[in-house]
Computed example of a mutant assay.
Amino acid sequence: MSTAFRSSPPRAVVLLSGGLDSATTLAIARDAGFDCHCLSLDYGQRHRIELEAAATVATALCASEHRVLHLGLDEFGGSALTDTRIAIPVDGVQPGIPATYVPARNTIMLSLALAWAEVLGSRDIFVGVNAVDYSGYPDCRPEYIAAFETMANLATKAGVEGRKLTVHAPLIDLSKAEIIRIGSKLGIDYRATVSCYQADEQGMACGVCDSCRLRREGFAAAGVADPTPYMRNPQEA
């Protein structure tokens, strides 16, 4: 008897921070039939607990592999996330680019994902950037993602030989509430995720940083109970 040939699912590199958005992005990639290889970056962030969350999420969502690369962007500083001398903003989301912007972070992360994708023979990278309910980062905009994809196809052996790479940003035009609704339908346990910029070693969220505010408002707008463990009553924020 002959056995019908079954092709392997396409591989994708998924950037996974351990937060709500990247977890949802992983779930979307998996639901689309990709064999997901997750990449996290230990860049000297003050909320390193997110890396433990990333490992938990990768296991829960059946990723084929999860790697953590170590790159000390705190050597440069320049961000409230990598330099403890710079205060985390806690007065609500304000216009402009906040102190939590990490110079070139998404470019660095996408470049590392691109390198791994070439080695894996993958033509797909997934990233959980969002240009609706976000803090104003320039490297979360659609035009940035399009520009990076163009560069990737110019700069790689795979691209030059005609194996076009696609950078997927499935959340880029969604509100936080829409993201949460999609993730909930895909079975994500958001208790396992850490979004807070100054979460403690147990993953308790401050409730007042921009990321906490956007996350909390998103759950409320989605009509989904917020499972986030907070250090204080969110109503006090």
Rank of each mutant, 00 (worst) to 15 (best):
T107G: 15
I108F: 14
M109F: 15
L110S: 08
L112E: 13
L112T: 12
L112I: 11
A113K: 05
A113F: 05
A113H: 08
A115G: 13
A117Q: 12
E118Q: 15
V119D: 15
L120Q: 11
G121S: 13
S122H: 12
S122F: 13
R123W: 06
R123N: 14
I125S: 10
I125M: 13
F126A: 04
F126V: 03
V127N: 11
V127R: 01
V127Q: 07
G128Q: 07
G128E: 07
G128A: 07
V129M: 11
V129K: 06
N130Q: 12
A131K: 04
D133V: 08
S135D: 10
G136L: 06
G136H: 08
Y137A: 03
P138Y: 04
E143H: 13
I145F: 03
I145H: 02
F148Y: 12
F148N: 02
E149D: 09
T150P: 00
M151S: 15
A152Y: 11
N153S: 06
N153H: 07
L154Y: 12
L154M: 12
T156W: 03
K157M: 10
K157G: 09
K157F: 11
K157C: 08
A158M: 14
A158T: 05
A158D: 12
V160R: 15
E161D: 14
E161W: 05
R163T: 03
R163Y: 13
K164T: 14
L165G: 09
V167L: 10
V167C: 05
H168A: 08
A169Y: 08
A169P: 11
P170Y: 12
P170S: 13
L171W: 07
L171M: 09
L171K: 06
I172L: 12
D173Y: 11
D173K: 14
L174I: 04
K176I: 07
K176W: 09
K176C: 10
A177Y: 07
E178V: 10
I180K: 08
I182D: 08
G183A: 10
S184Y: 10
K185A: 15
K185H: 14
L186V: 09
L186G: 09
G187A: 04
D189Q: 06
D189H: 09
Y190S: 06
Y190C: 07
Y190W: 10
R191Q: 13
A192S: 13
A192V: 04
C196E: 02
Q198W: 00
D200S: 07
E201G: 11
E201L: 08
E201T: 10
Q202L: 09
G203L: 02
G203F: 04
G203C: 03
M204T: 11
A205E: 07
C206W: 01
C206R: 00
C206Y: 01
C209S: 01
D210P: 04
S211Y: 01
S211P: 03
C212L: 00
R213S: 07
R213V: 13
L214V: 00
L214D: 01
R216V: 00
R216F: 03
R216T: 04
E217P: 00
F219D: 00
A221S: 09
G223M: 08
G223K: 09
G223S: 10
V224E: 05
V224T: 01
A225H: 09
P227F: 02
Y230W: 04
R232G: 00
P234Q: 01
P234A: 02
E236T: 13
E236G: 00
A237H: 11
A237E: 04
